[in-house]
Amino acid sequence: MTLLITVIAAVISTVVWYSSEKARELKTGVLLYMFWGASLMWLVDAVVEYLESGAEYFQPAGADMLNDAFLGLSVIALALVIWVIVLLVKDPTGALKRTILSRKSR
């Protein structure tokens, strides 16, 4: 479930990055790196688990699925927070700098 949620997040962020110049300017590439990197790594985990448990891998218990979904959403939230921090630190459009300077001049 965590893998599934992360792959969906990776695909959505790729489409956003590809289709919007503004999104590329806003450093959405950071999200791409995080989501695709984690998806590839969890894919390895999933393959290993499948080799160990066989078809049972595709029939997880309800509680496990819920916990994995909760983890997947938390991973997305964490990645978004990291992206926002990168965005504010790099300030590609200069919006943060302008805001701070305009407050200072008042």
Binding site: T2, T6, G29, V30, L32, Y33, M34, F35, W36, G37, A38, S39, L40, M41, W42, L71, S74, V75, L78, A79, I82
Partner: peptide, 14 residues
């Protein structure tokens, strides 16, 4: 670097 740092960071969280 981005994929390795990003992926291992999220896995560390897991």
């Amino acid at each position: 670097n981005g994929m390795l740092w990003g992926g291992s960071g999220l896995l560390a969280f897991e």
